[in-house]
Amino acid sequence: MELDLSKLDARLDDLDADGYLVDADSTDADQYYLSGFDAPDPFLTLYDGSTHLLFVRSLEFGRAKRESRAETVERFTDYGYDDRLDEYGRQEAAHRTRAAFLDAYDVDTVAVPPRFPLQTADGLREQGIDVLADGQDTLAAVRASKTDEEISHVRAAQEANEAAMAAAEELLGRAEIDGNRLRLDGEVLTSERLKEEIEVTLLRRGCALDETIVACGSDAADPHDRGSGPLAPDEPIIVDIFPQDKATKYHGDMTRTFCVGEPDEQVREWYDLTERAYRAALDAVEPGATGADVHDVVCDVYEDADLPTLRDDPGAETGFIHSTGHGVGLDVHELPSVGPDGGELEPGHVITIEPGLYDPEVGGVRIEDLVVVTDDGYENLTDYPVSLVVE
C-alpha cells in the first residue's frame, strides 16, 4: 500500500527534525502503519523520507525484509551492540546502538509520537540526539485519511461484524420469555452467551475482538459497560461489536439496541429520538462539514426534546453523555473526532455515527453505523436494519 506521508514531511520541516521515530510493537497503530510489519516485540522505525527498521534480535529479521515496506531492515548487532555489552551493560549499550543507527542516517533530531517510551527518549538524549514530542500527533492525523485499499479492509471487517450482529439477533429472536428472564433452549440467556456467539461468528470470518458489549437494563446506562448476567425481556439490550480483521488489522464498529418483548413508552420514545438523531447526523456528513457540526445536529434533536446533553450541561450524567462518533481504522477509536472539538471532515475519513441516551432508571439505547466521507457526501459501510423489537 502506498502511503501519502506529505503531512508528516511538512511536520518534520516545521519542527526542523531530521526524522520521525517510533519505538513500539505492531499493536501500536502508528508502528504498523509506518512499518507495514507485524511483530510482537518492540522495534524501531525511522522515517526520514524513507523508512528504516531496526530490530533488537534477529528473530524477525528475515520476515521483515520480505514483508515490511521499509527501504532498509537492520539489527542491533549491525551497529555494534554485542561489542558494547561488556563495557556498558544492556541498557546503555542499547541507547548507544540506537544512537549509532540514527547517526548512520545523519539524524541528529527526531520527532516522536506523544506516547513514545520515556526511557528510549532519555537514552537518546544522553547520546546527544534531540528528541521532540510531536504534540500534534501528526501520524495519527495522517492515518485518519484512508486509501481505497484501507476502506476495503474496513468494509470487510464491517461485513463480518454484520454477520456477528445477525447471529446475536437470531439468538434473541429464538429466546422465550420466562418471567423476568429470557431462556434459550431451556437455559437462561445471558450476556456471556450472546458474546460467545458473536465471537465465534467473527472467528469464522477471520476477525477477533478482545471484548464486546452486550448490556441490558441498568448496565446499558453506562455507554462502556460490557454487560454481564441474565438478559431480561421488555428492556433495551445494547449490542456493540468492534472487531479487528486478523489479517489486515483494520476494525469495524456497529451498535444496535434490541428488545425482546414489549418496551415501555419511554424506551420507545428514546429509541425513536435516537433514530431521528442518527439519521440527522448522517444527513450532515459531507466534506467541509466539521465533526462538531455533525455532533451539534444530534444535540439539537435531543435538546429540542428537553433531554440533557453534555453540550447543554457539561456535568450531565444522564441523557446524551458522549460524542457522536470517532474515526475507525487500525485503532477502533482514532481521528477524526465527531464531537465538540471535531475538525473538518475530508474524503477518506471513516467515522462512526452513534447517538444514544442513558439513564439507570430506564437503561440505554444507541444506534451506530460506520461511514466513509466521500467527495459529495458519505457512503454507509453498514448494511444492517435499524429496528428495536426483535421479531
Rank of each mutant, 00 (worst) to 15 (best):
C299G: 09
L370R: 01
D331N: 15
D312S: 15
P340T: 11
V294G: 02
L388E: 06
I367C: 07
V350S: 00
A316F: 10
P314D: 05
I367M: 05
E334K: 12
E361P: 06
H349G: 05
P308V: 08
G288Y: 00
H295K: 12
T324I: 10
D375S: 15
Y302I: 00
Y278C: 02
N380Y: 08
R311H: 09
E361Q: 14
E361C: 10
Y378S: 00
G363I: 03
D283F: 02
V372N: 09
R311M: 11
Y358T: 12
G364D: 06
L388N: 09
L357S: 06
E354K: 14
V298Y: 00
Y384D: 06
I353H: 01
I353L: 02
T290C: 11
D369Q: 05
T352S: 12
E334D: 13
R268P: 06
R366S: 15
D296V: 12
P336F: 02
T274R: 00
G343Y: 06
G291K: 03
V338S: 07
G356T: 05
R276P: 03
I351Y: 02
P340W: 04
D313V: 05
V285A: 08
D313I: 10
A277K: 00
H295C: 00
I351Q: 03
V328Y: 01
V285L: 12
D331H: 09
G291V: 10
D293F: 05
V298S: 12
G319Y: 07
R311Y: 11
V365Y: 08
V386S: 11
D312M: 13
L388C: 02
A289M: 11
E379W: 04
A305W: 03
E379F: 06
E269H: 13
A305N: 14
V389M: 01
A277I: 00
G356Y: 05
G288L: 05
H349I: 04
A281E: 13
L335G: 08
G327V: 02
G363Q: 10
G319S: 04
E317S: 15
V362P: 04
P314F: 03
N380L: 04
T309A: 03
L282P: 04
T309L: 00
T374V: 09
